[in-house]
Amino acid sequence: MSSLPMIPELLRQLMRKPATNLFPAKYLPPSVTEFLQSVASGKAHLTPPVETPPRFRGKIEYQRDGCIGCGLCVKVCPSHAIELLPETKRIRIWVDQCIFCSQCTDICPKGGLHMTDAFLLATEDRYEENLIVE
């Protein structure tokens, strides 16, 4: 087998467990919504995703109260995802457009912006309530 070194490797692997993390379930459920409902009611088990590292950049979090409306975050956002609302002097973040670079959290003089570890943000509606942070 020296000319086909893969064969022993494959046979060994056949006996081992696959490397895949079975998120959210072993096989694709026929309906994801129904699957999530049955998970909520405790009938099905959901395998959790791989853990995120400590300084992961996920969905942004905005502390409205500390904000002074300086607009620096708007200035550095590469994807123009942050909007300064002139009437309230507060910002609105369109997460749909956010590229998770965390530049706004670096520049915020009040430390009012944070990255959370939420990353399961896929949806069919780009303007969903979940995807607009204000």
Binding site: P53, P54, R55, F56, R57, I99, F100, C101, S102, Q103, D106, M115
Partner: peptide, 19 residues
């Protein structure tokens, strides 16, 4: 991912150094 916070778009380098 552990060092930079993301697997693909690292966002670690900034003008003047690293973030």
């Amino acid at each position: 991912e552990n060092l930079t916070g993301n697997r693909v778009n690292y966002g670690i380098i900034q003008v003047g150094g690293v973030r």
